[in-house]
Nucleic acid binder design. Structure first.
Lengths: 197, 197
DNA sequence: GTCTATAATAGGATAGAC
DNA sequence: GTCTATCCTATTATAGAC
């Protein structure tokens, strides 16, 4: 049974994905050719197609999955504080994580592709749903602790507010990518003050 | 003097841009070939290159400018209410405008391109700055009317909060593009409640 | 599984007639 | 200014040796 083979295969795939992400981040998905990946990886076209028969698109999907997966993991890890976090604090935590993992400009490109390509959109939307649900859960906890500010139904309040609160994440990523004078730290610091608290 | 010629030229350019936007929205920028534009417009390759010597990229820039311009115009129009709007109300107004003009999935694609292409980023970032400034101005007005909730320096408060508040716009556009179950109206309704008010 | 070399094609862009 | 026809480059993907 090919146990070693599987490990090797996964390692090689991971290696290629790593290179792909860095190239996509630097030159963009559309402008990165297979030849670029060959050069940057030191491998050959044959090696790449051997591991990713679907070619460039499959590679992009794989790269996207990898990036998005770490987002999910981090989210799961952040759960279970003792005191319910306010909406702004929830987002500050999430965005600090996004900031730490420097995927550069891959996320906006990913969103752009997702709005065209159904397969990529499926990936992205799954993550959006996850994030939204997680945010909603945190907001619900906080709402339960602050009925005076949120009304009688914490769960409904959380579900209603989650999409807006979640928007702070793409807003951060985009403004960081677009604006030279964007102040990342100030953005994160402002979060707890601008949402209800 | 070629007065008629200029009008004609602009009309033709506008016609082509119109077709380009609709094609980009439907099939994506990368996947739209000049041949597609030829087919969809009923014109010829020569006509397109005659009006847009820079080819596909110039066409995308022109399309982006057109879309972004209407965003700016609308912003300017919305100014000058008598009572200062709360942060959430400011964004509700802005997002209703975005929602009305159905540019579909072109904005996420535009952001994706902007994170790669310097010329497009210049366009987009100018609009982001405009929007941010406008939002900051409105927030400052509101802060001046509510020093108890915002502190002693309304202008500083407005500038600090604007980037986060502004994030609701890309958040809306993205979630609408990605999520089948996204509730646009609920999003807009939630805005005035989730930001400080 | 990976390499080298090459086939196959798509797509952007242009030349020249009208 | 616009059309038809065509060129040419860039890039994907594969075939066959090791």
């Amino acid at each position: 049974m090919p146990k070693v083979t599987d490990e090797y295969r996964n390692a090689r795939r991971g290696e290629i994905i790593e290179v792909a992400i860095s190239q996509f981040a630097e030159h963009g998905y559309a402008r990165t050719s297979i030849a670029d990946l060959v050069t940057a990886s030191g491998l050959s076209a044959g090696a790449i197609y051997g591991n990713f028969p679907g070619g460039k698109q499959e590679l992009f999907v794989a790269a996207a999955s990898r990036i998005l997966k770490s987002r999910r993991d981090e989210l799961a890890a952040g759960a279970g504080a003792d005191r319910p976090l306010s909406p702004g604090e929830v987002m500050a935590t999430l965005i600090r994580g996004i900031r730490a993992e420097n995927v550069g400009s891959v996320l906006p490109q990913l969103w752009g592709e997702a709005s065209i390509d159904a397969e990529i959109r499926t990936l992205v939307s799954a993550v959006f749903r996850d994030l939204r649900q997680t945010v909603a859960d945190r907001l619900t906890e906080w709402a339960a602790a602050h009925p005076d500010r949120t009304g009688a139904d914490p769960s409904a309040w959380g579900a209603r507010m989650a999409p807006v609160v979640l928007s702070a994440a793409p807003g951060f990523v985009l403004q960081r990518a677009m604006l030279d004078d964007f102040d990342e730290v100030a953005y994160i610091d402002a979060l707890p003050d601008i949402f209800v608290h």
